[in-house]
């Protein structure tokens, strides 16, 4: 539950986003939720060893993925994400079946070849650098891609995202410092998706700062704290923050309050939590009320996507595990792929 004060930072304009965009956001949010639920079902059925993901963060992560300037190389955005980023990946264009593959640890898992937990994406074609389990390390790496982008000029930015508890790690301070070196400010959007928990430890018992975003202020970093359970707020605020980072080539720290709808991970049972805001349900009610989508359409979508995910699951179930000898693959690279294989 979010108890911290939430500031609805808006630019004063209260116009709704275009209906097409709302429909697209909703479709991706629903797809993300159903994907996570399918993954949870898989873990219950013994079709995987561990589940962690982002149900409850769709209203923030989907707009994020839609707003990214996606592609490979410095003129596109770099993404240093964490293990709750399925919504962002689906919005970038990832196929849901590939997450099932990672869950099932099959050879065809395009993100790690059956090596890593689900939600640990790597997608060089979209500058999504490998997601790893250690909390907050992405905040130490993000300045590196941002330095390269600052030097290259253009409009490409670096986006780094993590949870609230992780901000206690030194890497978060590293990121604030490196992003704001005088004369070398970085085009770096720092995002904290605050679900007000670590695993079980609540934010309020460990942090004296009322808002995480306030920590940016000492460094002259622009900040905002928003309701990340509202996709329209998320979209607008992300758009503003990104535009600032793109054009000013300076950092921005955005804190988004989000929900954690199935607990921390499969280790804590992955059961639905009743007392947190469900951004998807709230958004659907709003779309119906505004007559953008009907209940019948919503039901049809849900039925269709559920069937698609079931079919995908049935396919993945038949796919082969990685070959034992593949442990020796990619210990070392034979060429540099990060610069397009130029050297």
């Amino acid at each position: 539950m979010n108890t911290s004060p939430i500031h609805h930072a808006t630019n004063g304009v209260d116009a709704h986003l275009a209906p097409d965009l709302l429909v697209r956001m909703h479709e991706l949010m629903l797809q993300t939720r159903l994907l996570e639920e399918r993954l949870i079902t898989m873990i219950r059925q013994g079709d995987g060893y561990f589940w962690i993901g982002g149900p409850g963060e769709e209203a923030f992560n989907v707009p994020l993925g839609l707003l990214v300037n996606k592609g490979e190389g410095l003129s596109h955005d770099y993404l240093h994400l964490h293990y709750r980023s399925s919504g962002t990946l689906l919005a970038l264009g990832a196929e849901p079946i590939d997450s099932l593959r990672q869950m099932k640890s099959v050879k065809t898992d395009p993100y790690s070849g059956g090596r890593n937990f689900v939600g640990h994406y790597s997608a060089r074609k979209w500058n999504v650098v490998p997601i790893s389990s250690p909390i907050e390390v992405q905040f130490s790496m993000a300045p590196g891609t941002a330095i390269a982008q600052k030097r290259a000029g253009g409009r490409g930015i670096t986006i780094v995202q993590g949870g609230d508890a992780g901000t206690a790690e030194g890497d978060f301070a590293t990121c604030l410092i490196w992003a704001s070196r005088p004369g070398n400010e970085l085009p770096l959007l720092m995002i904290v998706t605050n679900n007000s928990y670590g695993i079980s430890t609540t934010y309020g018992t460990q942090h004296g700062e009322p808002r995480i975003s306030d920590r940016g202020k000492a460094f002259g970093i622009k900040t905002a704290t928003i309701d990340g359970n509202d996709p329209e707020v998320s979209y607008r605020e992300l758009q503003k923050a990104m535009e600032y980072v793109r054009t000013e080539r300076r950092p921005f720290l955005l804190e988004a309050h989000v929900s954690r709808l199935y607990g921390h991970s499969s280790s804590s049972g992955a059961n639905f939590v009743e007392d947190e805001v469900d951004g998807l349900a709230r958004f659907e009610a709003r779309l119906v009320e505004r007559r953008i989508l009907s209940r019948a359409t919503l039901d049809d979508m849900r039925t269709r996507m559920t069937a698609e995910l079931l079919a995908a699951y049935q396919k993945v179930r038949e796919e082969a595990p990685p070959d034992p000898s593949s442990i020796w693959d990619h210990v070392f690279a034979t060429k540099n792929v990060n610069d397009g294989g130029a050297r």
Binding site: L74, F139, M141, G144, D339
Partner: peptide, 23 residues
């Protein structure tokens, strides 16, 4: 010159390497 921050130095080098640079 970097800040006095070894984790930042290694992390930044990793990020630079991922972004096609040679740090």
């Amino acid at each position: 010159n970097t800040p006095l921050d070894e984790r930042g130095i290694i992390g930044a080098a990793m990020g630079l390497a991922l972004a096609g640079q040679r740090p």
